[in-house]
C-alpha cells in the first residue's frame, strides 16, 4: 500500500517543522513508501496560512467583465474536480460569491452603501484558528494541521455524519449528496477535470483546503493564481506568523473585517472593504 493522502499531508507538514525536504521526510517517517511521482516535492513553509481578500479590487474586476469575474471559482473547481449539479440545494462549492449582506449578516446596516450591499464577496473556508467543525468531527476526518493552521479534510475517512456542517457557522462545507460521477453530463462534460486530484465517493463532506497539494509543491492556491493571472490581484495568500509577510503588510495598511468574529472561531480570512 502506498501512502494515503492524509498521511502524506501529515508528513509533509511535519517535514516543514523539521525543515526537511518532502522526499527526505517521507523516507524517514514512512520509508520506502514514496511513489516516484512525488520525488523532490518542496513542502509548505508557512506557520499560519491566511488570505487577505481585497473586495475593492475584486469589484473593480467584476465591473470590467460583462458577466462578472468568476476566474478564481472556475480555477478552483477545475483543480479539485468539483462537480456541478445545477441545483443550489445540493451544490458543492469550495469558493463562491454571495452578496455583502449575506456574507456579513452581523454588519447589519440598512443604510450601508447600496452599491456594496448587493455586491458579490468571495467566500470560502476561513481555516479558523479555533474551528468548530474540527471540534465536532467524530472521526478526525476533518483536522487542523497544527504546523500551518490549514483545516484539512480527509475525504477517505469521513463517514458523512454532517456534524461538521451543522457546526460551521459560515456554510463553508459541502456534502456529496450524490455520486459526483453521476452529476449531469451536460454541466460536467470533461469530468473529472483534473486527474491528478483524488476523486471522492458520494456521502462525504468536502471544502476548501487552501490547496495543500499545491502549496506543498511551492505553488500558490489555484484561486490566487487565477486572480493574479488576470492581474486583478484581489487575493493575497501568505503567512500570518511572519511579521514581514505580504499578508501582514496588507493588514497593517488597511482596515479589514472578518466574518462573524463574535463567535470566537478566529477566521484566517480577512476582507479589505
Amino acid at each position: 500500500m502506498g501512502l494515503d493522502r492524509r498521511e502524506f499531508l501529515k508528513i509533509a507538514g511535519m517535514a516543514a517543522l523539521f525543515g526537511l525536504g518532502g522526499k527526505a521526510a517521507i523516507d524517514i517517517f514512512a520509508p520506502g513508501e514514496l511513489e516516484a511521482s512525488m520525488e523532490g516535492i518542496p513542502v509548505s513553509k508557512g506557520k499560519r496560512w491566511a488570505m487577505v481578500i481585497d473586495i475593492r479590487k475584486c469589484l473593480a474586476q467584476q465591473a470590467k467583465d460583462k458577466d462578472g469575474c468568476k476566474q478564481c471559482i472556475i480555477a478552483c473547481h477545475r483543480a479539485h474536480n468539483v462537480p456541478d449539479w445545477g441545483d443550489p440545494k445540493i451544490e458543492i462549492k469550495w469558493i463562491w460569491q454571495d452578496s455583502f449582506e449575506h456574507s456579513f449578516p452581523d454588519q447589519h446596516n440598512p443604510y450601508i452603501e447600496e452599491e456594496l450591499r448587493h455586491q458579490p464577496v468571495i467566500l470560502m473556508c476561513n481555516h479558523c484558528v479555533n474551528p468548530p467543525c474540527v471540534r465536532v468531527c467524530p472521526t478526525q476526518a476533518t483536522f487542523k494541521r497544527e504546523e500551518d493552521g490549514i483545516v484539512c479534510m480527509d475525504m477517505h475517512r469521513c463517514i458523512g455524519c454532517r456534524f461538521c456542517m451543522a457546526a460551521c457557522p459560515y456554510g463553508s462545507r459541502s456534502f456529496n449528496w450524490g455520486n459526483p460521477r453521476k452529476a449531469p453530463k451536460e454541466l460536467n462534460p470533461d469530468y473529472p477535470t483534473n486527474r491528478d486530484y483524488p476523486e471522492r465517493c458520494k456521502g462525504v463532506v468536502e471544502k476548501c483546503d487552501f490547496c495543500v497539494e499545491r502549496i506543498a509543491r511551492g505553488e500558490l492556491p489555484a484561486c490566487v493564481e487565477a486572480c493574479d493571472k488576470i492581474k486583478a490581484h484581489a487575493l493575497t495568500f501568505g503567512d500570518l506568523a511572519d511579521p514581514n509577510s505580504n499578508v501582514r503588510k496588507l493588514l497593517k495598511e488597511h482596515y479589514t473585517i472578518r466574518r462573524k468574529p463574535e463567535l470566537g472561531t478566529e477566521p484566517n480570512l480577512f476582507y479589505i472593504v
Binding site: V136, P138, G160, C161, V204
Partner: peptide
C-alpha cells in the same frame, strides 16, 4: 443518516473525545 455507512467503524477506530457524537 450517514453518507458513508460502511465506514461507521471509523468512529471506534479513531476515537475522538472532543466530539459529542463519539
Amino acid at each position: 443518516d450517514l453518507g458513508n455507512p460502511v465506514r461507521i467503524m471509523n468512529v471506534i477506530l479513531y476515537p475522538t473525545p472532543n466530539s459529542i457524537l463519539f
